[in-house]
Structures are given as structure tokens and as C-alpha cells.
Design a protein around this nucleic acid. Structure first.
Length: 316
DNA sequence: GCGTCCAGGTCTACC
DNA sequence: GGTAGACCTGGACGC
């Protein structure tokens, strides 16, 4: 029985939009695809240090003093160490301490970003609560159209994930690394339709089981070191590491390369995969340390940017 | 209904 | 160090 076991409130550095931060326009989830968002409140789940928690996160406060109220549901009592860890993880993953003001100062002078930061005022970037679900996302995005990636992710949750009910909501959560590590690769292939990715995901889960830095530890590392660590995992290359990395970089794939090519060069490249390196370089030169922010803001504002540039960027 | 092609990368062998 | 080719498989597409 999952009942209320802990409560914490976090003051966010303004501007902060809770709704845009946890429910991004591009449609990505904050923690799990089955989470529920109603009335500026998110009911979701997270597995922290091998324990699954139910979470009710609510954006409160005022625009000058934004606050996120977090209620934690569990089937066991939390000791003080566990409460601290859960609180730290929520604070980090909600991005409440992420200061957007310097990014907005830069963006106001940039033709691509100027209106986008108004459109998405107060939206935080991406800081995954847990590492393994972010790695699952990265692996299932590889060499597959979105429909097929979603199919693989949904089958993983359906067949091997966990389901909890709390606060009147029923939420399904990603499988744990130990569950995926213990499964035969053939079963992963067959039931989750992972194809060649089954072996990679199984090896990643085993590496995490043997001991690997947590999201929190990766976030505390210099970003190059965090990326290097992630790229030691089988099936995690440059793009996947940058998707998973705390704070994000500029993880261009074929899809986003087409979008940024239209924005930089006003045309879709003949061979998008071959254009990635040059576009990454341009993004880094143009936005420097804010390239991750620019990436997230642009990809979450495609409808409005499309109208402004006169090209439908949502069809790629 | 059937055959073909290819997708929101990564790894490896080969030069 | 640079690069072609293989990798699973489901869905889109042409016929």
C-alpha cells in the first residue's frame, strides 16, 4: 500500500514554469510515459536507489516566488537518509535551481531564439530523475522511426515494468536495471521487439548492476568526464550520451539535423547524417555553453518557429 | 497480398 | 583516423 511518507517544497529561481518544465510541448514525459498531468499537478513515479516511489508534484507559489510542492508515496517508511536523497533528486530533476537569466540575455540577441524564449518562458531543460530510463530512451531511439521507438518503450514497460497505485492514480514505471540484466536477450528481443538493441540494453543493465555513476554523480562531474563514462556503455555513442547527459549538449540526430539545417542554412541537407558534424559545430559556435538550452527550446517550439520561418518543421 | 526499402546510431573491420 | 557495411524488425510504400 503506497501512502504519503514524505513532503518537501522547493523554491525555484524565477522565471519558472512548472507546467512547461514537466510537460514539455514536444510531448516528452518527465519520468515515465504513463504519468498524469492535471491542474498544474503531476502524478508520476521514480525508482531511486532500487525503491519505487509515487510522486505528486505541484506547481504553486507566485511568478515572483515560484514553488514546487512534492509529496512522496511509498510502501515503506523512509529514514532521514532516504528522505534527503529523494529530496535532492527531485530538486535536481525539477531544475528549480537552474538559473535561466544569462541564457535569456544571450537569447534576446539571437534571431532564432529571441521569440522562442518568450514562447516558452520559464521552461527548464532536461535533467532525468533516473539514469536507466534515459538510457532506454536513447537506445530505443536509435535507427527507428518514432512510432517504432514508442512501441519498444511501451512493450518494455508493459512486459517488464512495475505498476503502482497511489493517491487515486495508477502509474506504470520503467523496468529496473536488475530485471533487464536478469533476462535472456532472446526474451527481450521477442517481447519488446528490440532487435539488435536487446543485447545492448542487457549489457547496459548489467553494467549498471555492477556499479556505475548515478544521475546525481554524473551531474556533479565535469561534463566531458560524464560523457566519457556514458560512452563506455555498449551501444551508447556520441548522440546517446548527449541525450542522457545532465544538462544536455547538442545531441543532433538525423531528425534534429534537418531542423537545425533549415534554421542555419534555410534548406534540408541532401544527406542529413553527413551534415550532423558541421551543424553541431555551428550550434556550438553560435550558442556556446547554452547550446543545450537552445536545443531544448527550439525543439519544443517547432509549431511557432515553423510559422515564423515559413517552413513546416513538424513534418520531419 | 507481397516484396523492397529504410529508419531520431553504433560498432567493427579494414584501409 | 577515416569510412563502409552490418545490425533487428516493423511499417510505409509501390505494384
Amino acid at each position: 500500500m503506497f501512502t504519503e511518507k514524505h513532503h518537501a517544497e522547493f523554491a525555484a529561481i524565477p522565471p519558472y514554469s512548472f507546467a512547461l518544465s514537466v510537460r514539455k510541448p514536444a510531448g516528452w514525459w518527465w519520468s515515465t510515459p504513463t504519468e498524469v498531468f492535471e491542474n498544474n499537478t503531476l502524478w508520476t513515479t521514480a525508482r531511486l536507489e532500487n525503491r519505487l516511489y509515487g510522486l505528486r508534484l505541484q506547481g504553486t507559489g507566485t511568478s515572483r516566488k515560484p514553488v514546487v510542492a512534492c509529496t512522496v508515496f511509498s510502501d515503506k517508511t523512509l529514514n532521514e537518509t532516504e528522505k534527503d536523497y529523494v529530496s535532492r533528486t527531485l530538486e535536481r530533476a525539477l531544475g528549480v535551481k537552474e538559473d535561466l537569466r544569462d541564457f535569456y540575455s544571450m537569447a534576446c540577441k539571437d534571431d532564432i531564439l529571441r521569440k522562442t524564449v518568450d514562447d516558452l518562458h520559464g521552461m527548464r531543460t532536461v535533467a532525468w530523475p533516473e539514469l536507466f530510463p534515459a538510457l532506454i530512451l536513447a537506445v530505443t531511439l536509435q535507427m527507428a522511426p518514432m512510432k517504432r521507438s514508442n512501441q519498444m518503450m511501451n512493450l518494455l514497460i508493459e512486459n517488464f515494468g512495475d505498476h503502482i497505485t497511489f493517491d487515486g492514480k495508477s502509474i506504470a514505471h520503467w523496468p529496473s536495471p536488475d530485471k533487464i540484466a536478469s533476462l535472456p536477450v532472446s526474451e527481450l528481443k521477442e517481447k519488446a521487439k528490440l532487435g539488435y538493441r536487446a543485447l545492448n540494453l542487457n549489457c547496459i543493465a548489467q553494467a549498471l548492476e555492477k556499479g556505475f555513476p548515478t544521475s546525481e554523480e554524473l551531474a556533479a562531474m565535469p561534463s566531458d568526464d560524464a560523457k566519457e563514462q556514458l560512452m563506455t556503455l555498449r551501444g551508447i555513442g556520441d548522440y546517446s550520451a548527449e541525450i542522457v547527459m545532465p544538462g544536455m549538449r547538442f545531441p543532433l540526430d538525423v531528425w534534429s539535423a534537418k531542423i537545425f539545417s533549415v534554421l542555419f542554412h534555410a534548406k534540408v541537407p541532401d544527406k542529413p547524417r553527413d551534415a550532423i558534424a558541421e551543424l553541431k559545430k555551428l550550434g556550438e559556435e553560435r550558442w556556446g555553453k547554452w547550446r543545450g538550452h537552445a536545443f531544448v527550446y527550439v525543439l519544443n517550439d517547432l509549431q511557432r518557429i515553423s510559422k515564423r520561418v515559413g517552413v513546416d518543421l513538424t513534418i520531419f
